[in-house]
Amino acid sequence: MMRIGVDLGGTKIAAVALDDAGTELASRRLATPGSYGAILERIAELIGALEGELGRPASVGIGTPGASCRKTGRMTLAGNTALEGRPFVADVGARLRREVRVTNDANCFALSEAVDGAAAGAELVVGVILGTGVGAGLVADGRVLAGARGLAGEWGHTPLPWQRADERGIRACHCGRASCIETFLAGPGISADHLRATERSLDAHEIVAAARAGDRGARATLGRFYDRLARSLAVLISLLDPDVIVLGGGVSKVHEIYDELPQRLPAWLGPTRPAARIVPSTHGDASGVRGAAWLWPTAEAAWGLPRPGHSVLGHTTDSLRRRQ
């Protein structure tokens, strides 16, 4: 069986074809156009090119910003794409003339790492994205847990746990609230914290480099970041008790994280609570597109997935047509 995964982002649309073993057979990428109709055409173009190159049809899974609401079938929280408010799942399925599985890009990241990445074989996996934004995806026994409205894992827009006096209400978030986890742990949040503490404007990469060179202000900034990350992950561990937490996104490439967290987590979990294994992703930036491909597993019955038309990931084109 050949499967195609599509990663729809704000600037590019990437597609990859995988075989049953997860071997990449072919890949393509194109710039994301500005209009909704053009996005549908661009996805169809990518899939047609891959199927033409490999000479056979494939299943299609797509990772997107935001999620498809089960009640309305329309996209919500779709970021800087033209998908917001659109019935994307139904429209892309109609355009491709097949059932298509669609879920949030963080879910795709988590699924990729759970299938054949850093958390392969684990029962419950949380994939945490630490980049220009913060989010998470959940996978249990190889199945994405998308939630009732497809929004499970919006962890970045919950309050930073155990806030200290100097952390309360000082950071406005684009979601309309203050002191969300994202405003502390995303790359721009780290930069803002450093500016506030040192009056020096550096991006997250520059802060890491300065800390490694011995800069005391940068080291203090990263110390605060590690502590806040430990507090935030402690809540996920307490709520979900995952086997593995896989970190992805640009901030996750700071290798010191994986030495710091085991030392800092016990203070927030308590002496009798074991911490989950926390690891960097195996597939890195390719995890999203690979996870989209794995929305169609090799043997659906073995993975416990439903029959076509009854997706656990949100609406499929069949279920949407019945509701229209």
Rank of each mutant, 00 (worst) to 15 (best):
V6R: 01
T11H: 12
A14H: 08
A15W: 04
A15L: 09
V16K: 01
A21H: 05
R28H: 14
A31H: 03
G34Q: 14
S35A: 15
G37F: 06
L40E: 10
E45C: 12
L46D: 03
I47D: 01
A49T: 14
L50G: 01
G52S: 11
L54P: 07
S59R: 08
T64E: 02
T64H: 02
P65G: 05
P65K: 07
P65E: 08
A67M: 06
R74N: 10
L77E: 11
G85V: 07
R86I: 05
V92A: 09
V92H: 04
V92F: 08
R98N: 11
E99C: 08
E99M: 10
R101Y: 14
T103N: 10
N104P: 06
A114E: 03
D116T: 11
E123M: 04
L124C: 12
V125N: 02
G127T: 09
V128I: 09
I129Y: 06
T132M: 11
G133K: 03
G133Y: 07
A140N: 08
A140S: 13
G142A: 09
R143C: 07
A146Q: 04
A152Y: 01
W162G: 14
W162P: 00
Q163E: 13
R164F: 00
A165D: 12
A165R: 11
A165K: 10
D166A: 14
I170M: 08
R171G: 02
G176P: 04
S179K: 03
A186F: 05
A186C: 14
G187E: 15
S191T: 15
D193A: 15
A197C: 10
L202F: 12
E206I: 02
V208I: 14
A211H: 02
G214V: 09
G214P: 03
D215V: 11
R219A: 06
L222M: 14
L222D: 03
G223V: 12
R224D: 13
Y226I: 07
Y226V: 05
D227H: 00
S232V: 05
S232C: 01
V235E: 04
P242T: 04
V244Y: 00
V246K: 02
S252N: 10
H255E: 15
L265F: 07
G270M: 03
A275S: 15
A276K: 01
R277H: 04
V279Y: 03
T282I: 09
A286S: 13
A286T: 10
V289N: 01
W294H: 13
L295W: 00
A302Q: 14
W303P: 00
W303H: 12
G304C: 08
R307D: 15
P308L: 11
V312P: 10
G314T: 14
D318H: 08
S319N: 12
S319R: 06
L320Y: 07
L320E: 10
R321T: 14
